[in-house]
Computed example of a mutant assay.
Amino acid sequence: MAEASSIGRTHQINLIKLYGFCFDPTTMALVYEYMENGSLDGFLFEDKSAINWCKMNEIAVGAAKGIAYLHAECKKRIVHYDIKPGNILLDRNLTSKALVYLEVTMNFGMPHRILLTGFRGTPRQWLPWWTWDMLHNGELLVMVSLCGVPEGALEKALRMLKVALLCIQYKPEERPAMSIVVKMLD
């Protein structure tokens, strides 16, 4: 209940608002803000409809701002261990909002810097080490252009890809802070 209360008091434009919850023994429920366009994974993997690359960049920046707020700006620091397209939801204007739910780890009275060691997340979602070699050899630009990215958006798409690769470094100290991610995407 304490975690639900903390999440309910956490407000930022790129976070989904938790309106209420019920922990009755017969009914357990969380009531979140309604997001008309569902999750980002529907647009990326199920091809709900096409999103232009300019809008995709806005979605990435919005998600990064929501996560940056959780990590560094809100009173109760929240580390979200499950950032993925299914947890980035889109409102009617395709504004991205990160879903924060009760499986997150709250930082109650702990040091402000939480060092994550080792591997987190689903292993099959991590890109192999050779992706960096492809980046340095210019092969990723070719891959991005083959994915249907219009020529005018190639630079923006490649920047988004580079930032994403920086964020999934195996060693935590090699990953940029989310505030830096926001600046790189902006």
Rank of each mutant, 00 (worst) to 15 (best):
F119L: 10
L166C: 15
M160L: 03
R159G: 13
Y69P: 04
T10R: 03
N14H: 05
V61M: 04
G66F: 02
E103N: 15
G148A: 04
E103K: 14
L140F: 00
K65V: 05
T27E: 13
A98E: 12
L94M: 07
W129V: 15
V142D: 06
Y69R: 02
M1Y: 06
N93Q: 12
E58K: 11
R124I: 15
N107H: 03
P25V: 00
G8V: 11
T95W: 08
I180V: 15
V149D: 11
E174H: 13
N37H: 03
I180D: 15
A2M: 12
K76M: 15
P123S: 12
N107T: 03
M56K: 10
L161V: 15
Y69N: 02
I114G: 10
N37L: 00
D133R: 12
S179I: 09
D41G: 02
W132I: 14
E73G: 05
E58C: 09
H112N: 15
C74S: 09
M35F: 02
L135Y: 10
A64T: 08
A29D: 00
E3R: 09
V181F: 07
L70A: 06
L154I: 09
Q125M: 12
K183D: 13
H80A: 06
Y69D: 04
P150R: 01
M134L: 13
N107Y: 01
R113H: 11
I16H: 08
V163M: 07
L161F: 15
L158E: 12
M110R: 10
L185Q: 03
P111A: 00
G148Y: 04
L140M: 03
